[in-house]
Computed example of a mutant assay.
Amino acid sequence: MFGRKKDEPSAQESVGQVAADAPLKSAGAGKGAPTPKRRAQEAARKRPLVPTDRKASKEAERVAVQDQRQKMRQALDTGDEKYLPVRDKGPQKRYARDFVDARFSLGEYLMFGALLFVVISFIIPSGSETLSYVLIAFWVMFIVVFLDVLLLSRKLRKGLAQKFGEVERGTVWYGSMRSLQFRRLRLPKPQVQRGQYPS
Rank of each mutant, 00 (worst) to 15 (best):
residue 151 L to S: 11
residue 138 F to T: 03
residue 155 K to H: 15
residue 172 V to R: 01
residue 157 R to I: 03
residue 122 F to P: 02
residue 145 V to W: 01
residue 132 S to W: 05
residue 165 G to E: 05
residue 153 S to N: 07
residue 158 K to W: 11
residue 168 E to T: 06
residue 137 A to F: 03
residue 163 K to D: 05
residue 157 R to L: 03
residue 126 S to E: 13
residue 166 E to C: 07
residue 137 A to R: 01
residue 152 L to G: 00
residue 146 F to H: 11
residue 145 V to M: 02
residue 122 F to W: 10
residue 160 L to E: 00
residue 164 F to P: 02
residue 142 F to G: 02
residue 136 I to A: 14
residue 157 R to A: 09
residue 140 V to L: 12
residue 147 L to Y: 09
residue 170 G to F: 07
residue 169 R to M: 13
residue 143 I to F: 11
residue 170 G to R: 06
residue 139 W to D: 12
residue 142 F to W: 09
residue 150 L to D: 08
residue 130 T to E: 09
residue 176 S to M: 09
residue 128 S to Q: 07
residue 158 K to L: 15
residue 143 I to A: 10
residue 166 E to L: 08
residue 162 Q to A: 09
residue 135 L to W: 11
residue 159 G to Y: 00
residue 148 D to N: 15
residue 170 G to E: 06
residue 174 Y to T: 01
residue 121 S to C: 08
residue 122 F to A: 12
residue 150 L to V: 10
residue 151 L to N: 15
residue 141 M to N: 10
residue 177 M to D: 06
residue 151 L to F: 15
residue 175 G to A: 04
residue 164 F to C: 03
residue 143 I to Q: 15
residue 133 Y to D: 13
residue 164 F to E: 01
residue 151 L to G: 12
residue 159 G to N: 08
residue 160 L to C: 04
residue 164 F to K: 02
residue 153 S to Y: 03
residue 136 I to L: 15
residue 151 L to I: 15
residue 133 Y to P: 01
residue 159 G to W: 00
residue 140 V to Y: 04
residue 142 F to E: 04
residue 138 F to R: 06
residue 153 S to W: 02
residue 158 K to D: 15
residue 152 L to F: 01
residue 166 E to M: 08
residue 130 T to I: 15
residue 146 F to T: 08
residue 177 M to H: 07
residue 162 Q to W: 13
residue 156 L to D: 00
residue 176 S to L: 04
residue 176 S to N: 07
residue 144 V to M: 11
residue 159 G to Q: 05
residue 129 E to W: 14
residue 128 S to C: 05
residue 158 K to M: 14
residue 122 F to V: 12
residue 128 S to V: 09
residue 162 Q to I: 09
residue 162 Q to R: 09
residue 120 I to P: 00
residue 150 L to W: 10
residue 139 W to A: 11
residue 145 V to A: 04
residue 168 E to F: 00
residue 163 K to S: 08
residue 127 G to F: 06
residue 168 E to S: 08
residue 131 L to N: 00
residue 140 V to S: 08
residue 163 K to R: 11
residue 163 K to F: 05
residue 133 Y to V: 15
residue 168 E to L: 05
residue 130 T to Y: 07
residue 171 T to L: 04
residue 155 K to L: 11
residue 146 F to R: 12
residue 139 W to S: 10
residue 139 W to I: 11
residue 138 F to H: 09
residue 172 V to S: 03
residue 157 R to N: 14
residue 147 L to K: 11
residue 156 L to W: 00
residue 140 V to N: 05
residue 131 L to A: 05
residue 148 D to T: 05
residue 121 S to H: 08
residue 141 M to F: 14
residue 159 G to M: 06
residue 144 V to N: 13
residue 174 Y to G: 02
residue 137 A to S: 08
residue 156 L to I: 05
residue 155 K to Q: 15
residue 156 L to P: 00
residue 143 I to E: 13
residue 137 A to N: 03
residue 152 L to T: 04
residue 174 Y to N: 02
residue 137 A to Q: 03
residue 172 V to M: 02
residue 125 P to T: 01
residue 144 V to Y: 08
residue 154 R to K: 08
residue 128 S to K: 07
residue 176 S to C: 10
residue 167 V to I: 06
residue 135 L to A: 13
residue 154 R to Y: 12
residue 120 I to G: 05
residue 150 L to E: 07
residue 154 R to G: 14
residue 138 F to G: 07
residue 133 Y to C: 07
residue 125 P to N: 04
residue 177 M to W: 13
residue 175 G to M: 04
residue 165 G to W: 04
residue 174 Y to V: 04
residue 144 V to K: 11
